[in-house]
């Protein structure tokens, strides 16, 4: 199946492929529109970022008591400050990612997918560009507020390298997370109810992704299992890079993210093409 955005009619009716820049420009416009849309509601944006204060405060209490009880300066190589900065980055990623599975699922169930399929863009890439527009600002808000709070609690953040490495990894995290969201949303073509998949995926991220606790604190066998699953590379990878940046770690995070993107992205593409080909629209 040729995707619609790849086909542009010549005046005489022949079809040519638009340049990559033209295609990228289209999704850039969608991204920018969503970004501007989010900027139009700054209070809303700020309000959503306040949640990170709540989580950081609870984590601070939990881990301060825990470190105090063990009497150790560091646990699994992480000091209390490292743990808090790790959790700040993990929460910032978690709270800023846009869960598009519900939107996609609703569009499949109520049939509005039909109106999006005949537009001159790819349904999946459209949602990714729009979601990314919302995530970027939310991530910025969460980082600013989260950094201020954690700085007050445990002192200054890691150096600039950590910010740069983690920032690069977060971009791929969003892409990988979006693939899972799309997979859950597209499952509405097959099953009636997709909420359960969404909840369970979120909990896998919280636990096996390392949002609630750094994977370094897991028993060895569970750590091995977690690191061989994609969830760790959505949250743990960037957050651990933030507190312990090294080229070796960066390479490993990129490699794992790349592998899982190819696997999950490939599945999404396959399912989308099959589902779109089998779509039956009744009425109009």
């Amino acid at each position: 199946m040729r995707t619609k955005e790849a086909n542009v009619l010549y005046p005489e009716g022949r079809v040519r492929d638009p340049s990559a820049a033209a295609v990228a420009g289209k999704y850039w416009a969608i991204f920018r529109t969503q970004l501007l849309n989010s900027l139009a509601y700054p209070i809303d944006l700020l309000g959503r970022s306040l949640l990170i204060i709540l989580f950081m405060w609870i984590f601070m209490n939990l881990w301060r008591v825990t470190y105090g009880a063990t009497g150790a300066r560091s646990i699994a190589g992480l000091t209390l400050a490292d743990t808090m900065w790790y959790l700040m980055m993990a929460e910032a990623v978690m709270l800023s990612k846009r869960d598009l599975s519900e939107t996609i699922s609703e569009q499949v169930k109520d049939g509005s997918v039909a109106y999006l399929l005949n537009k001159p863009f790819n349904f999946i890439l459209y949602h990714f560009a729009a979601g990314l527009g919302g995530s970027v600002l939310a991530f910025g808000g969460n980082l600013i507020i989260g950094t201020a709070v954690v700085w007050l609690m445990v002192g200054p953040p890691p150096g600039m390298t950590g910010w740069i490495f983690a920032g690069a990894a977060v971009a791929l995290s969003w892409l990988l997370d979006f693939c899972f969201s799309a997979l859950i949303g597209l499952s509405a073509f097959v099953v009636e109810e997709t909420n359960a998949f969404r909840w369970i995926y979120q909990k896998f991220l919280l636990l096996l992704g390392g949002v609630l606790i750094p994977l370094d604190f897991f028993p060895a066998w569970l750590q091995t299992v977690s690191l061989n699953l994609p969830f760790a590379w959505i949250i743990y990878g960037p957050a651990r890079l933030f507190v312990d940046p090294s080229l070796a770690r960066l390479g490993r995070v990129f490699l794992q993210q790349g592998i899982w993107l190819a696997v999950v992205g490939g599945i999404v593409w396959f399912i989308y093409r099959r589902a779109a080909a089998r779509l039956v629209i009744n009425g109009g």
Partner: peptide
């Protein structure tokens, strides 16, 4: 589906506390 899904969801979340108290 929602009932079973929510039970699983809660159970997975609770694993955090099992791991936590196994260590601390």
């Amino acid at each position: 589906t929602q009932v079973v899904g929510m039970m699983l969801n809660n159970a997975i979340y609770f694993v955090f506390w099992i791991i936590f108290f196994a260590r601390f």
